[in-house]
Nucleic acid binder design. Structure first.
Lengths: 159, 159
DNA sequence: CAAACAGTTTAGCCTTGGCTAACAATATTG
DNA sequence: CAATATTGTTAGCCAAGGCTAAACTGTTTG
C-alpha cells in the first residue's frame, strides 16, 4: 500500500483537519525538529554563558556543570566544540568569554527564551512550570509564532 | 566565584524576574528537557504508526521512512527498539501493529499534539507553521500548560 | 611555602540515532 | 512462472552527548 492508496478515504474518518499531511510536508516537519535538536544544546550553552557573564561577571565550567546538572567532563568537552565553532574564547583554567558570534547567538536565544516565558506567564501558567516549559519550547517556536506570542503578551499587560 | 557570590547584586541588574534562577531549579529545567529528548523520538514513531493504522489500515516501514525523511535502515533499527520496549508487534516483512501500551502512548501523543496544534491555530498562527511548531513543541509542554491551551482554544471557538 | 582543596582537562567507555552498501524476501507483471 | 521492482534487514560506519576515573593546574591556608 502506498501513500496514494485510493482506499484511504474509506478507512480514514473524513475530517480534513485531521488527515495525514502530504508526505513532503510531513517529512519537512520531522526534518525541522531534527535540525533544531542539533543546534539547541549549543544555543543553551551559549545562552547560559551569556547569562553567567551578565549576572556574575564570569562563566566558569564548574558553574555551567552545576546549572546544567551535568559532569564537568561533559562541559569541558562541549567547550572544546564551542571553541571550534568560534562561539567562545577560552584559556585553560580560566573563565570563558563569548566571541561576537557567540554574543549575537546569546542575545537571540535570550530574547526568544524571554518571549516564550513571558507569554506562558501571560497565559496563566505558574512560574515554575513556565520556566521548565520555556526551556524546552524555545528552540521549536518559529519567528511567526514568536511574534504572535509577543503581541499577545503585550495586549495582556495593557489590560 | 561561586553561586553564592555576594557581589551578584552589584553586577546584575536588579530585575527579579530576569535574575538567574537558583541552581537547583535551573538544573531541574535542563534535566527535564534532556529527559524529554530521550522519549520524544519513541513517541513520534508510535504516534505516526498509530496515525498510519488509523488512516491507512496498515503501517509499513517504507511509509514511516518516507514520512520521517529517514532511511529504511534507520526505521528498521528503530522498530527493533520499539519491539524490545513492547510498544509494537511485528513480523518480518509485514505491517506493524501497536501493543496495548503502544496504543495508549499513541493516543496520548496524538491528543497532546492536537491540543498544541489547535491552540497555535487559535492564536492565529498559519497552518503550515503551526504544524511544524506543534511537532517540535508537543514534547515540551507540561500538563498544566496543556490544560490552559485547551481552555484557550475552546474560548476562542465560542466567539 | 608546602599541603590540601577546588577546578579543569584528558582518556576511554557507552548509547542513540543517523548513514550507506549488500543482501534477502515479497509482490507485481510481462 | 520467471524476471523485475519494491520492501525489509543486516552489518558496519560515524558524530553527539552522556558518564567515571585519573591526571594536572591553580588557589587557599596552616
Amino acid at each position: 500500500m502506498t501513500d496514494s492508496n485510493p482506499n484511504a478515504a474509506l478507512t480514514a474518518p473524513s475530517i480534513p483537519g485531521d488527515a495525514l499531511p502530504p508526505v513532503e510536508q510531513h517529512a519537512q516537519q520531522y526534518a525541522t525538529v531534527r535540525n533544531a535538536h542539533e543546534t539547541e544544546l549549543i544555543e543553551d550553552y551559549v545562552e547560559l554563558i551569556g547569562d553567567l557573564l551578565a549576572h556574575r561577571g564570569e562563566a566558569r565550567a564548574a558553574d555551567i556543570a552545576n546549572r546544567m546538572a551535568v559532569s564537568q567532563a561533559t562541559v569541558s568537552k562541549m567547550i572544546r566544540r564551542l571553541n571550534e565553532l568560534e562561539l567562545v574564547t577560552s584559556k585553560p583554567y580560566r573563565s570563558l568569554f563569548l566571541t561576537e558570534a557567540g554574543q549575537k547567538m546569546a542575545e537571540t536565544s535570550r530574547a526568544r527564551h524571554d518571549i516564550v516565558l513571558h507569554f506562558l506567564r501571560a497565559l496563566g501558567v505558574k512560574d515554575a512550570t513556565a520556566r521548565i516549559d520555556a526551556e524546552g519550547m524555545e528552540h521549536h517556536v518559529s519567528d511567526e509564532t514568536l511574534a504572535i506570542m509577543q503581541r499577545f503578551t503585550e495586549q495582556q499587560q495593557n489590560n
